[in-house]
Write a protein that binds this DNA or RNA. Sequence first.
DNA 1: CTATGTAAACAAC
DNA 2: GTTGTTTACATAG
Length: 353
Amino acid sequence: MRGRSQTWSFTKPPKRIAKEPIVKEKSVEDIFNELLESANEFMEEPEDLFGFRYEDLSDIEEGSVNQRSPVEHKKKTDLAKICGFQSYHHIIEKAIHCSPDKMLTLNQIYSWIEENIPYFRSLTESKNSKGWKNSVRHNLSLHKQFYRVLREGQRACLWACDMNRIRNEKVGKLRKISHQPQQAEHSIPTFRPRSKTDPTAMIRPTIKNLRNQNEENIVKPIFNSLSSRFEAIEAKKKQACLENVHWAHDLSLTEQCRNSNSYTNVSNVDQFNTFNDFNRQTLTDSNHDVSNAPQMAFTTFQNTSLNNSSIMTPVQDISTSFIPNHPSISYPFMTLDDQAIIEHEKHLYEVTP
DNA sequence: CTATGTAAACAAC
DNA sequence: GTTGTTTACATAG
Ligand SMILES: [Mg+2]
């Protein structure tokens, strides 16, 4: 996968979220325990995080969302040497091109590869197909020339290839012309397990554009994730400005979130701010400094049509101090129209030739 | 730096 | 388990 800084050209790349804890003198456990302590007096089951106990959260990491541990990778396969194809997408292009209708299902692509490239055939024969098949799927998704052709009543779609779909990615560079908050210097390190035990993680999936799998992938979510993912958010907005695509996000809270006491649907930005102010105050009262928590860029709410999109929109990112089932705190979310956000924030960017 | 290979999380089915 | 999207990280040049 491309690094975000590679995918999108930033004149000034946003700071990468530090891997080191920002507050070094406190461990994440310390911070968690502080939070827990402050919440204990309110919470019915203080150790309980949506049914999981903190001790169970073995994969908590600090300062970053979903940060994986470094992993020893296999050496890159030299495809050119092994099979004469420059890279995976060339293989897929060939496979599709060789088909009568110029389209194949995923499984047919696998088959073509196995039938025509001994290297992959032998991998499959030795039960080692997981990796290259993953790479095939990765490449299908990644490269714009590959697009899906839906079939009525069939789960697996057909994959087609149109080189004209690779284009205009770099018509102009967007320059950021106003400050957007990055990670605050002294903010609390993001307390973010990368597991399902993370309450905010329950929101994250809805932010992906999976629901758009039955549509052409023109409609995309604008926000890839919440809180510390400023890079992604900024990049998406920039792309929106560049491509003038129709944006709609796919952000409905999960049922679990909707039914939880931790969220309240608000209908305007005033209500939203009221909730956030109250939450901040509550946390501050329990000796929790959220004043330097990262801020999301948008604070304006345009009440427009767009489906039933909803998004958690921390004006100040108190999700770093998320306390689930806190009887005094309810995290507000509201319906937003991406186009409105883009329009609102368009002035933050200019396109340079 | 860019391009791309590898691994995997996650969701939907 | 399969299909698909995405993120993270590694490596080659
Ligand atoms: Mg694609």
